[in-house]
Design a protein around this nucleic acid. Sequence first.
RNA 1: GGGGACGUAGUUCAGUUGGUUAGAACGCUGCCCUGUCACGGCAGAGGCCGCGGGUUCGAGUCCCGUCGUCCCCGCCA
Length: 609
Amino acid sequence: MCGALRASDAGKKAVLMGWVNRRRDLGSIIFIDLRDRTGVTQVVFNRENSAAHDKAEQLRNEFVIAVIGTVKLRDKDTVNKNIATGEVELIVEELRILNDSKQLPFLPGDTVLPNEEMRLKYRYIDLRRDAMQFNIETRHKVSKAIRDYLSSQGFFEIETPFMTRSTPEGARDYLVPSRVQPGSFYALPQSPQMFKQILMISGFDKYFQIVRCFRDEDFRADRQAEFTQIDLEMTYPRVETVWGVVEGFLTAAFKAAGVDIKTPFPRMSYDEAIRKYGNDKPDMRLPAMVDIREALTPEELEELTTKFRMRKEFPVQLIRIPHAGDISGTERRTIGTYGAYNHVQGPAFVQLMTDPKRFAKDYAALSEKVAAFAKVEADDLWLLAGAANKPENAAVMDQDVQHFCEKCGFLRLDLAQKYASKHKAFEKIGDVAKDYRFLWVSDFPMFDWEKEEKAWMPAHHPFTTLHEEDFAKLEANIDSARDPKSPLGEIRALAYDVVLNGTELGSGSIRIHRQDVQRKIFQALGMSDEEAKARFGFFLEALEYGTPPHGGIALGLDRIVMILTGAESLREVIPFPKTARAVDLMVDAPSPATEKQLKELGLLIKKAT
RNA sequence: GGGGACGUAGUUCAGUUGGUUAGAACGCUGCCCUGUCACGGCAGAGGCCGCGGGUUCGAGUCCCGUCGUCCCCGCCA
């Protein structure tokens, strides 16, 4: 292989096959960098071998060739330290051109990348690039390590159907029309949720699957129409049992990629995550926000909130960007301008104090106290965010503390992005403990209030169980599905997320295994028996036949590999990804169906007007 | 559904307050070159300035629309 030859191979005969990565034609001597998956070797055509040399003059970029020759140790001054095979070269005796190539839209060996549209259209060329080969290799190693680990722990990998029916995941389904039953559709699974629970009922007490899932929503850098999950489920687990399994296979997966992570991961409640980070998937590489109210006397708080027109019954969050250094006055004034950043949009119900220098001048004692309380360091950039005190604006006054914290959390992230080159928290430094900040977030709310539906909906999915001590609260408020003020919002689920560097890697829960509890949840959701039966009848029936307690989790394989390879988007770690509009630019999918296909399926296309 | 960025040789980009023949680098073609490794030198080919409309004496540049790509909000456990 092109990456295999070493100094110890000198003198041996060798056959290499690969692509012409680059040619350097010096007249009587021609150098070709020959490339395959394993690397690059320099092959040499001398004039002495005129047959091979003459043929080599025809070689162009990305021709596929075979060369037979002798491995030669390079002279000391011609060694190339940049490549693994740099100590040797192959002196060619015979050249065979296995295939030519017309001019390519871009070259795998190019130093500048073409834009993504081009890369996706000619994905087969893009995938030849070193970086993509590395990403796909890492992906293979990671999934193999996970398979091996889970198998060693007694898990069976079991396949579940792709052509199935809608599951209660909340996202839009991709539908597949049935030919034999016109008018009926299969749904592609958003996750194998109900099947894996059925497998628990079926006695396969430890299941996993590395499985494709499909969601028809809008896409982002970290969201694709089809993506791969490491899905698992087990019987009789406590929350910690599931966490242990996940920590185990992640350790194996990261080790396969050369990273030794430490377990157990830190833990945090959903409540704390929102309060301190304004986010349910906190990026622990950045400092938490600090509510500075408790550092102040009531008089000081009054003074501060009056001065900056903040509401004192809301947190006053100190947001700190480490080592941002001095920034200009203009920058300080525009720092909280809405729309200036990616995340923060909408009405300004966050009131900012963005000029700590001036604050220190006007209120020296107060400023010092606040900075000390939040452990601000000398070259940190910091600002205070409070809830805007504008009684004339009802929309602003209507917001709750959680919403306020989330806005602050967005601001925290936007600022961190803006000053990334200064604090360098997003750059990998080779210190595993700082490069990979894992976190378990638990005790998610059981129900979310959905404004559009004007009802409480499951925050996770309706098969998630709740904290035992919150059971009374559920029973007391079981008929308040349409009351936005209902204490249903306070009920905590036995649900958890695993988070890495601000990315949600996976989400899971302990499930409901008793039919009576399940019925109560549906009742609390305002769902009638008939409706529940129509949607999940088969599943509810299965629950009645001796269902063991069970729970599990699913993690995004693509996201894991993305973070491990340092990729900026999922598209870098998925061989054939789709664009933000869910188009595959290489095969040009989706595409219209033919009249014949539509007729067979009993479908009529309503023309867009 | 909404906000933002972008679209100019094969590719990556530059193109000034609207002004003559739209440039560079890499790639491509030909020639020269025996130690290069992002080889070098000389010569050359290559453009519906995304598409459609408008303003103007004149549009790559200004305006409107449209298509496409990317990032974000909403949405998505």
